[in-house]
C-alpha cells in the first residue's frame, strides 16, 4: 500500500513518463489510472512493488518538493532517477507502457480497435487481380531469379 504522498508522487511521475497530448484529448499515464495496474502487475515483472517504490523513493530523495516543482524540474529529477537505477527504471517504463496501452478505451486514440480483435478483426479489402498483376508485372518481367541446384 502506498501512502497518500507516494500515490500523488507516482501519479505525477506517470504523467511525466507518458504525458497527455497538448489538447488534453489523450490522457497521460497518471490520469489514465496506470497506478492501479502497477499494483497488480506481478505476471509481468518479478517484483513490481519494489520497482514502483524504488522509483518513488528515489524521486523524493532527490527532490522532497517534487510535487511543487516545475514540469521541467520534475523531468530533470526523473532523468536522475533513470541514471541512478537504470534497470529498475527500465522495468518501471515497461510496466507503465503495459498498464497504459492495455486499456481498451485508449487504443482507438492510436487507430486501433477498442474491442478484442477476435472475432471481428479488421476489414482489409483484397487487391483485385488486375492490381496484383500490375504490381507484380516488373518482377515477372525479370524472369527466374533463383539459383538452380546445379548452380
Amino acid at each position: 500500500m502506498l501512502t497518500t504522498r507516494q500515490t500523488e508522487t507516482l501519479s505525477l511521475i506517470l504523467n511525466d513518463v507518458i504525458p497527455p497530448s497538448a489538447d488534453g484529448h489523450v490522457p497521460g499515464a497518471g490520469n489514465a489510472g496506470v497506478a492501479s495496474f502497477l499494483q497488480q502487475a506481478t505476471p509481468y515483472d518479478p517484483d513490481p512493488a519494489r520497482v514502483v517504490l524504488t522509483v518513488i523513493e528515489t524521486v523524493l530523495e532527490i527532490a522532497d518538493d517534487f510535487s511543487s516543482q516545475s514540469p521541467q524540474d520534475r523531468i530533470d529529477v526523473i532523468i536522475r532517477v533513470q541514471a541512478q537505477h537504470p534497470q529498475i527504471f527500465e522495468r518501471f517504463l515497461r510496466l507503465t507502457y503495459m498498464g497504459y496501452y492495455s486499456q481498451a478505451e485508449l487504443r482507438p486514440l492510436f487507430g486501433v480497435a477498442a474491442e478484442p480483435v477476435h472475432p471481428s478483426g479488421y476489414p482489409v479489402p483484397s487487391e483485385s487481380s488486375r492490381m496484383m498483376a500490375d504490381l507484380t508485372a516488373p518482377v515477372r518481367a525479370r524472369g527466374a531469379v533463383y539459383r538452380p541446384a546445379d548452380g
Binding site: I18, Y97, Y101, R107
Partner: peptide, 18 residues
C-alpha cells in the same frame, strides 16, 4: 501500440518516455 512502445516484437527495448 503496446508492442511498439515496448520496442517491437522480439525486442526488449522500450521507446523513450516524456
Amino acid at each position: 501500440p503496446m508492442t511498439f512502445a515496448l520496442g517491437g516484437y522480439g525486442i526488449d527495448r522500450p521507446i523513450p518516455w516524456g
